[in-house]
């Protein structure tokens, strides 16, 4: 079963071919980082415009990379939401038409479920065992989910304000480090000493699984303006990163403990963060929990994860009608397999 995956929910145009939900035959991503760089964040209209330009070249490249033609495909899987509506519509319109033209089924994948399936795509890594807990952490999302099976997400907790990746972007902007903030701050933090400055950790309700990052952002901004350049930027970056990572890791393992799971998956763009990876690995070791984090090429938005999740939609017969549409919000009722727990 060879599935063409297509992803265009934010600022990456991606196409991939995945076999049986686990084997990547090809995976192509066109990033728009350069385009949005000067605006300090993703501009929806510009993202949509560039998806239209990139969609054909990405799909052609994904097919060519595995020596296939469109006629060899068995199904098409496409991100249906959540995401930027204008951006989603490009991939969604293209994918459904492609499947219609080929007379093969098309499935609409929940973007966050796609991210969770990124931990099933590396043959050298042992995949998680259901049920497991997943921390989805990126520029647009920060949430903890209980994952009882391949097609269900049960929301345990989520950010009440900024996503973790968004906090990185905002701090990078204040510090004049450019966009996206994650990789820059991660690299800078590795050069610094986290203990020289202390930023507050927002644990909110001690027993709760919600996050908040806006207070941290304000604390860093305040510190920067009061410090007047005395503390090195590397030390500030390290202290900021420590504060983010501490909260993410402790809430993730609290969720694992509450749900009585043995497996934790950390996925999404911020899962590529080295500070997070290190701290999560230490904690997993100590607690005897199996930790699953994808390699960096599968952390950011990609279409292989969409095709992987799409395989399970197909197995369950969740095929799109010709009159399907995209959705923008993660918790839009009735359309997705997400439920509150």
């Amino acid at each position: 079963m060879r599935i063409l995956g297509i992803e265009s929910s934010c600022d990456e145009t991606a196409a991939a071919v995945v076999e049986d939900g686990v084997k990547i035959l090809s995976s192509e991503v066109a990033s728009q980082v350069e385009i949005h760089h000067r605006y300090g964040g993703v501009v929806p209209e510009l993202a949509s415009r560039h998806h239209v330009e990139a969609i054909c070249p990405m799909v052609e490249a994904a097919l060519a990379a595995c020596g296939m033609e469109a006629g060899d495909l068995d199904a098409v899987a496409v991100t249906q939401g959540p995401g930027l509506v204008g951006a989603l519509l490009v991939g969604f319109g293209f994918a459904r038409a492609c499947a219609f033209g080929l007379n093969i089924p098309c499935v609409g994948v929940h973007h966050l479920l796609g991210h969770i399936h990124s931990v099933f795509l590396e043959p050298e890594k042992t995949p998680p065992v259901y049920p497991f807990v997943a921390l989805v952490v990126s520029g647009g999302h920060t949430g903890l989910y209980h994952v009882p099976d391949a097609l269900t997400l049960e929301l345990l907790g989520q950010t009440r304000d900024d996503a973790a990746g968004e906090a990185y972007d905002k701090i990078a902007k204040i510090m004049g480090l450019g966009y996206p903030g994650g990789p820059v701050i991660d690299a800078m933090a590795a050069e610094g000493e986290g203990g020289r400055v202390f930023f507050p950790r927002a644990f909110l309700d001690k027993d709760g699984l919600d996050f908040s990052f806006s207070g941290l952002k304000s604390a860093v901004a305040r510190f920067l303006s009061e410090d007047g350049g005395k503390t090195s930027r590397a030390d500030i970056a390290a202290a900021f990163q420590d504060a983010v990572v501490d909260v993410l890791v402790s809430k993730a393992f609290l969720a694992v403990e509450k749900m009585g799971c043995r497996d934790l998956a950390i996925v999404g763009g911020v899962a590529a963060n080295r500070g997070l990876k290190k701290k999560a690995a230490q904690e997993a070791d100590m607690r005897g929990i199996r930790l699953h984090m994808p390699s960096p090429f599968l952390c950011g938005d990609n279409a292989a994860m969409i095709a992987a999740a799409g395989y399970h939609y197909l197995q369950a017969g969740k095929v799109l009608g010709l009159d399907a549409d995209v959705f923008s919000r993660a918790t839009d009722p009735g359309r997705v397999a997400v439920r509150h727990r």
Partner: peptide, 16 residues
Amino acid sequence: TGLRIGVSTMKGLAMA
């Protein structure tokens, strides 16, 4: 948005 729906859909059909 409207013109992108048409252009993307027709591109998908053409690729197929």
